[in-house]
Design a protein around this nucleic acid. Structure first.
Lengths: 135, 135
DNA sequence: CAGCATCCTATTGGATACTG
DNA sequence: CAGTATCCAATAGGATGCTG
């Protein structure tokens, strides 16, 4: 994934410890908050799932993106890949302890959304109506 | 921003309450975890900042993306825009209560990263070396 | 200063087809 | 089943130039 942004100034100042030393943490952030990364991580919170299982579970996701996302997350040590070498190959994916700990703040973000998404939508409507009247 | 994904199946199952009813919350998630959204939200945690202030603070960010991100977040009700109508116009941006509450789980995610990014990097190196040896 | 409009390129990501 | 490879469309996003 891409890294090449040098937004390191905001780092020490606003984001506290995160992002320090350039954008080391930025890559990790991009991986786990990526479009599909969250869904995959979330889908694995309840236990190991096979490749095809994930494919049906996350209905809109193409095989390409699934395998690509899994590869990234496995490389990051957040997800474990377990192969059962049989003639119909069975491959399971599960959260590592690291991945499990990562999924917790992620879950609280998800929780925030489930609580406040209505507020956001209300704000959007309010904003749009104000535009229509006030210009 | 884009919405058009129908990954609603994972919703009720793995992500708990989030993502329910299609992908309502997904949009919000995309906004606040977007490449620049996080940086802007983080940059505002310490208090109101002017447009140009944000521009220098988040060094790699173009004016286009800054204004675009701000507009989105203002519309979402997470950021407030305050205009001081003087001949050199002064516009400040600050977190709304909603935005402030959103920035908290975001911050815990950032904290997780600052704690564990080294682990991730170690995992990556380990993974790459294993590849080099094992194939 | 605080933006918006335009152009143009890079990246993301879906569809399809093929392999062990 | 569990992927990989290729092609192609949509989007993100940077550079530039212009407004109030």
């Amino acid at each position: 994934m891409q890294v090449g942004v040098q937004a390191d100034v905001v780092a020490a100042d606003a984001a506290g410890d995160a992002f320090n030393g350039g954008c080391r943490g930025r890559v990790v952030f991009d991986h786990i908050t990526s479009r599909w990364g969250v869904l995959v991580l979330a889908a694995l919170r309840s236990g190991p799932v096979r490749f095809s299982g994930l494919h049906v579970k996350i209905s809109g996701m193409s095989e390409k993106m699934l395998s690509q996302t899994l590869r990234t997350l496995v490389r990051d040590g957040l997800i474990a890949r377990t192969v059962d070498a049989s003639t119909p190959p069975k491959v399971s994916y599960s959260l590592t302890p690291l991945g499990s700990s990562a999924s917790e703040p992620l879950q609280s973000l998800l929780d925030w959304i489930s609580v406040h998404s209505a507020d956001v939508e209300r704000a959007q409507r309010h904003h749009d109506e104000a535009l229509a009247v006030d210009g």
